[in-house]
């Protein structure tokens, strides 16, 4: 019913969330129409001019109790049949890191720092005192496992059809990592690292074909008020094929020797 409104869906679980929102809206519509029809009819039928003497008792039937029980059952079904299992899938059934693309995202006023573990697959250490806004926004320690780590600003790249696990945190205030196309939203909270996962199912190239819009981009939006530029805290997600993704990582890695910064825009 409402697909036309949602942002184009591009993750494995997007369909089930959309269906659920659809189903809830059907329920709402039915209730509204039943109530509304009863209401309008009553207002006309029982206006003082047509019904000068009110009936002390009014409705005797128990239909409304039946209605209330039906509403309760419908809510129970939505809850037990859909919402609770879907939520469990999001927060309890996180796939193994070995089979996934693992990324860290460190939010800050007003950008998304994306952090990859590099060739060794191990994230380095971060230390707030190493932070330098221009050259090292995540405070990465280049000694040890961090030597080959890669970071970008506002550019998240992922391979298609493979689970992506993103460990989210924030340097300063609470932000919210919103990927409308992926039906993902998770607050980034300083002091906590929160995993969020999804499987992108369409590459950027595919979604451009599907929408007929050659400039279509997957956007990352901030959904939690985080200061004066909250409205423009925009990032981008590019979904590649596996080969393209590897090529992108290799290219990023090749910049490492230069200056330590690799803040370029594809």
């Amino acid at each position: 019913m409402m697909d036309a409104m949602f942002p184009a869906a591009a993750s494995e679980h997007a369909g089930e969330i959309d269906n659920m929102i659809d189903a809830v809206h059907y329920l709402m519509l039915v209730l509204f129409i039943v109530w509304g029809a009863f209401f309008l009819y009553t207002l006309m039928r029982f206006r003082a001019a047509r019904n000068p003497k009110a009936d002390y008792v009014g409705v005797k039937s128990k239909a409304s109790t039946v209605g209330e029980v039906l509403v309760a059952i419908a809510e129970g079904v939505l809850l037990l049949g859909f919402s609770i299992p879907m939520w469990a899938e999001r927060v309890d059934e996180i796939p193994s890191e070995a089979d996934s693309t693992v990324v860290r995202v460190v939010a800050q006023q007003f950008a998304w720092n994306v952090w990859y573990p590099g060739a060794d697959g191990v994230f380095g250490e971060a230390d707030p005192y190493l932070t330098d806004e221009a050259t090292n926004p995540i405070g990465l320690d280049r000694d040890g496992a961090g030597a080959d780590d890669i970071w970008t600003v506002n550019q998240l790249h992922l391979p298609v059809d493979k689970a992506a696990i993103i460990h989210l945190t924030s340097k300063d205030v609470i932000h919210s990592f919103n990927l409308p196309n992926m039906r993902i939203k998770q607050d980034a909270i300083p002091g906590l690292s929160i995993p969020v996962w999804f499987v992108p199912t369409k590459t950027t190239v595919q979604i451009r074909e599907e929408t007929g819009n050659p400039d279509y981009v997957y956007e990352i939006a901030c959904a939690q008020l985080c200061g004066n530029s909250h409205y423009s805290m925009r990032g981008f997600l590019t979904v590649h094929t596996e080969e393209e993704f590897q090529a992108w990582l290799d290219e990023e890695a090749s910049y490492l020797g230069d200056s330590g910064t690799d803040d370029f825009f594809n």
Binding site: E75, M86, P180, K185, A223
Partner: peptide, 16 residues
């Protein structure tokens, strides 16, 4: 309209 917001899975795209 509070219903979809009260179901956590439906709340993901709708929250905030």
């Amino acid at each position: 309209t509070g219903l979809p917001l009260g179901l956590s899975a439906a709340d993901i795209p709708l929250h905030d």
